[in-house]
Write a protein that binds this DNA or RNA. Structure first.
Lengths: 190, 190
DNA sequence: CTTTTTTATTAACTAAAGTCAATAGATTTG
DNA sequence: CAAATCTATTGACTTTAGTTAATAAAAAAG
């Protein structure tokens, strides 16, 4: 299963056996059951994640309502904001499906960065790329209607439509479940 | 004017005179007149910017209409997406006001990173922080109405309301100018 | 300083999302 | 497998944004 991780890294740079072993020795591979909550509002975290298998969801609870803001699936990585800013978490993170993740702390990163400095370069580059992706998604979100967003999502991440309950997709698209239901109806008529 | 830059960096780590001189010698300080276009759709770029003074806007042109997606003001930094992904730019970048910027290329970064490796750590950390900020803004955008977004903006970036024409703010808030006009009217009545 | 152009407001109307409530369908659990 | 819970759909109604067009106000250009 760790192959996923090294396959991902090697898209950016070759990884030696020595480096692989150093990473494996950190003991960062973890399995979680469906609906496991990895982080709750108000908690602190120092974990960064990489999804080997499964689907992870980030959501807020506002006035008792879940507001889903992100889904992470195979080969995607994420750090909860509280890992970066050291403030209590504003959101929840949970497993939509049974999932396999790597879970790393800043200390582990430091260990690796000291041994192999080019991993810090890699992380800088990845982080810059993620920032660009996040901004492009945001730009696109602003400049499209709920219907356009749903159509786009079903093209770019068709798996999500299958894997995730519709009320979670709705708030991910910035609308109410009833509206998503109507949008789907509207589209199917065309 | 370069003081702005070092003041910013020193919030994260002390900067020696040697480091300051190495940065100054790169010759990255630039002035631009109001409405200068720094980047056009279809062009390539390898520049990363830091705003010393002024206001910079990122926007798309879709069906002849400008869709503003970001404003960068004093002490904010940004890289156009094409600088990161080496694809032709999808958006425009221009100066809302006469502005002073630093403009760096990846080669310049490399030069500095080689001489002073901790600058790469700094850039990794900054980039991770920017990513978190971008995601938090996106989360908030999804979970609020146009009216709430406008109220929030006038609290968090009151200067923008003054500095920027309303039709640009409107598309930044994901709505039409007419709607923003009505929202402002609605709010003033309360 | 007057004209032209750009930006902002207002109004009438349309389209779509929000809200509330009822119901149906699906899934989970005892 | 039957009951309970969770999820999705539908309908009636309200609210707000989009659209088009006219006008007013402000800014830029001559």
């Amino acid at each position: 299963m760790e192959k996923e991780l090294f396959k991902f890294i090697s898209k950016y740079m070759p990884v030696s056996d020595e480096e692989k072993n150093a990473i494996i020795e950190l003991g960062i591979f973890r399995s979680y059951k469906k609906d496991t909550i990895l982080l709750r509002e108000g908690e602190y975290s120092n974990a960064s994640y990489f999804v080997l298998k499964g689907c992870i969801r980030s959501y807020y609870i506002v006035n008792g309502e879940e507001k889903t803001t992100a889904f992470y699936t195979e080969s995607e990585s994420f750090s909860p904001h509280c890992t970066i800013d050291n403030k209590p978490s504003k959101h929840y993170i949970s497993c939509v499906e049974a999932s396999m993740l790597t879970v790393a702390t800043p200390e582990m990163e430091k260990t690796i960065f000291n041994k192999f400095p080019r991993f810090e370069s890699l992380c800088r580059i990845l982080s810059e790329e993620l920032l660009v992706k996040s901004q492009l998604s945001f730009d696109e979100f602003k400049n499209s209607s709920p219907e356009e967003r749903y159509i786009k999502l079903s093209k770019t991440r068709p798996d999500l439509i299958q894997r995730v309950p519709q009320y979670q997709l709705a708030s991910y698209l910035g609308i109410k479940p009833e509206s998503l239901s109507r949008i789907r109806k509207r589209i199917s008529k065309k």
